[in-house]
Design a protein around this nucleic acid. Structure first.
Length: 120
DNA sequence: TACTTGACCGTAT
DNA sequence: CATACGGCCAAGT
């Protein structure tokens, strides 16, 4: 066998997609939290790269993914940026100045709550 | 092979 | 709140 990660990475990609697909409407998660839940701790950039290469026609709630501080990761003013803000707001998520306020819960806690239903 | 690029992140100043 | 720095690592040049 010649390539290990040549088969391992696609596996990881599938897990990342699964985690993102599991984020319920009206909820958000950070790149880092998603990577961690997909078994790739410390590899938030891989998630970003993957989303960047994800075809726009694929069904995936990509817009529920934000930076750890709540900011939208796309270039401010770009089409994707506006699209993301629009979709989030349409789900009832507050977006102010390209950013989602993380009032009492961090994005990680928010994702955990979403996946495991932990109470506040 | 070496260097650069990214839809990132935590810590420090 | 803003900068800076190191860490992360697949892919492209």
């Amino acid at each position: 066998m010649s390539g290990l990660q040549e088969t391992v990475l696609p596996e990881a990609h599938a897990r990342v997609y699964a985690v993102i697909a599991a984020i319920p409407p009206g909820r958000v998660a950070s790149y880092g939290a998603i990577a961690a839940r997909a078994g790739l701790p410390g590899r938030a950039r891989l998630v970003g790269k993957l989303l960047g290469q994800t075809p726009a026609d694929m069904e995936l709630p990509w817009y529920r993914v934000l930076r750890a501080n709540g900011q939208v990761a796309l270039p401010p003013g770009s089409r994707g940026f506006r699209e993301q803000c629009r979709r989030l707001r349409s789900e009832g998520v507050e977006v102010r100045n390209g950013r989602v306020p993380l009032s009492r819960f961090g994005l990680d806690a928010d994702l955990d709550r979403a996946l495991w239903g932990m109470p506040a």
